[in-house]
Each structure stands twice: as structure tokens, then as C-alpha cells.
Design a binder for these strands. Sequence first.
DNA 1: TCCTTTAAGTTGACGTTGTCAATATTGACA
DNA 2: TGTCAATATTGACAACGTCAACTTAAAGGA
Lengths: 201, 201
Amino acid sequence: MKTKQPFHHGSLKQALLDASGALLDQQGPEGVTIRAIAREVGVSHAAPVNHYKDREALLTALATVLFKDILASVQEKLSDKNLPASTRISAFAIVLFEYAMAYPNRYRLLWHTGLVNHDDPELLDVMDQFYNACRAEIAGAGLCSEQDTETYAIALWSLVHGYTDLRLTGMFEAKNDTISGRPRLEAMLDMFLNPSHAKSP
Amino acid sequence: MKTKQPFHHGSLKQALLDASGALLDQQGPEGVTIRAIAREVGVSHAAPVNHYKDREALLTALATVLFKDILASVQEKLSDKNLPASTRISAFAIVLFEYAMAYPNRYRLLWHTGLVNHDDPELLDVMDQFYNACRAEIAGAGLCSEQDTETYAIALWSLVHGYTDLRLTGMFEAKNDTISGRPRLEAMLDMFLNPSHAKSP
DNA sequence: TCCTTTAAGTTGACGTTGTCAATATTGACA
DNA sequence: TGTCAATATTGACAACGTCAACTTAAAGGA
């Protein structure tokens, strides 16, 4: 048995992130504690401090990784250049929503002030990329006047984030949202992207 | 000095709620700990358990009170029967947003899964009242076909909640949301309630 | 090759938290 | 007056984040 645990892990920083992600999926944001992560990786409870200043720093790094995944997912979907404008725009909404439904705890972490530092430059950078890409897509589609694009983009993100968040807290699940989530989202997007919804028969 | 602290507080349950609200405003949801509340009220750290099963129960009760305040605020605004339909509808949005800006920590608590139990019947009841009132107002205005009212109402709540939440995390504050919050919200509501925004000059 | 430096991991401690069990106090009611 | 149930206190426990002191090992220069 020469395969004893080496004193130096070698890639603990990455291992910590991986374990954090797994813990997050299983137990939710509250379950992602420094000590639990350390246990998972098989390292002492104070080892993580060498790689992340504190719990918030670790969770912020994790959130950044997760949001990068979302961004990459959108970009991949948009790589098809033949998509109609409305499809390209709603891609931002669909990807975000589906991600949240597939990994509710990850989405929850992203917006968990108190665990994540939303002033972190790296995290801000990724979120800005997401927003700017969305904004650019809207501007390119000519859906509204140029001066309204900002409002339009903010409204789109707000709509999707709001619906997603309310849904994750179980707000519509029970009674009113009889149509399961995704179709409802698409109905809202349709209303939003196609203003001719008013007073339809 | 006959004014010694009586052993029985008399109205500890209410005092706990009051102290929780004050702590919430000052320190945010994480600062509202059982022990801190007990200290504030001047009672032993285990006293609250007689009135609330655990921390989650206490914070859920607090959230219920806060949401009742919001609902009452909306109802008061709607008591004027001469308001135009669009004003009545946007009242839900405005009140919610202004409340969140005035008391950010309270709004944060409302949606803080892990601290608040969103399956609590009393809390659900208040939220249902809020949603149903909003839905009724939309249905009455005839803004959309009857079968679309549900989607319309959910979209409105999602839009406002999403914008509010993103704004509280500081998302637009820095760069893009140069127009301060309230005007931006009104621009979005205008876009939402008045579909003629498409391709305006 | 040996010695030093330094990054990385461990151990043990401290203060804080939520919660529980055991105990004490009090007010109300018989 | 005596009893009981509600209410409050005390003390304990485990888990947490963080820090300081220590140990280990790897790397690099002499």
C-alpha cells in the first residue's frame, strides 16, 4: 500500500469547488459549510482557508463558476446564426429558467446575499457579460426604439428572474400555475415579445 | 423600586416580533438570531421557544406580518374608487417596489428560503390574497383575453419581483440603471400595460 | 547534498449559534 | 390555601467559522 494520502493534496482548490457544487445540489446553500466541504474532500477543517479567505469567498467563487456555465449555455445556443430574432432573445430566458429548474439550489445560491458577495469583480463581470449579450440581442432585433432597449432588456431579465424565483419558492406551484412552468414562461415571453396580445379574442 | 422585571413578561410573543423587526432592519436576516432577539427583549436565550417552535417559525411569523403590511398598503391605495384601471394595476407594483426600497432587509426576508417556511398556511394565505387581488384587478380592466389573465397577472408579479430583487442585489445600481429605480419601473410598467411600445419613433 | 525558505495542511482553541432537558417561578383557579 | 399549567431560567450539547501555533513537504540555491 504505497497509495497513502499525500500531505499536499495537489489540487485542493479545484477539489473544494467540486465538493461545494455537489453539496449544494444535495443540501442547498445552507448545507455548504466549510467543515462539510473539508470532510467531503478528506482534509482537515481548516485546510480551505489556504485557498479561500472565508466561506463567502468560496461561495462567491462557486457562484461565479455556475454563472459562467449559464453564460456558456446561452452562447452555445446562440451559435446557430440562422435563428430568428425572437428565438435568440428568448434563449436567454429559456436557458436561465431551465437551469434553475434542473438545479434549483444552484440558482438559489446565485442570488443569496449573505452567502455570496455580489460586489465581487469576477462575479460582476460574468453577470455583466450575460446582461450585455442580452441587451445587444434586443438592440439588434429592433423590437423597440433605441432609447428603450435598456428598459426592454432590464424588463426581460426581471421577468424571467422574477418568475423563476417565485416559482422556486413554490409560489405558483400549488394553485394558479396549472400550466407547468415552461409553457407559462413561453406564454409570458410571447406576450412580452409580441405586443399584439392586447384584447385578443 | 418596585418596578422589578416580572418573571412573566406578559406579552413576550409580541415583544419578540417587534424586536425581530427592529433587528431585521438594522442587521439583515442573518442578524435576526434567537439569542439576539432574546437579548434585545431582556429575556433568557431559551425563552422564545415557549412562543415559537424554532427560529424558522419565528421568522415565518415575522414575514407574515410584513406581507400583511404590504397588502394593507395596497388595499388602502385602492380604496379610492375613481382611479383609472392602469393606475390600479400598477399600484401593486409600485407599493411592492417602494416597500422594498424603504425596507430592503424586510423584503429580503420575505423570500429567504431556509429562514422562512414558504409552505406555512398563514403566510401562503396572505400571499394568495395579494396575488388574487392583483389578478382580479387585471381581469376587471379587460387588458387581455380572459384566458390570458392568469399569465398576465403572473407576468406582472414576476416583473416587479424580479426587478426589485435584482436591484436589491445591486445588479443595475452601478452601471446600466442610470435612471433611478422608480422611473425605470414605471417605464417598464408602461411598456407592459400599454402594448403600443413596439417600434415607437 | 544539505540547508533554508515557504506554501500547504493539521491541531486545538474560542466565541457564537439553535435546541433540548431539567429546573424554577408565577398566576390562575379550585 | 393548594395545585397545576404556563412561562422563564440555567446549563449543556453539537455544529459552525475563524484564528493562532505547529508540522510537513516540496522547491531552489549553496
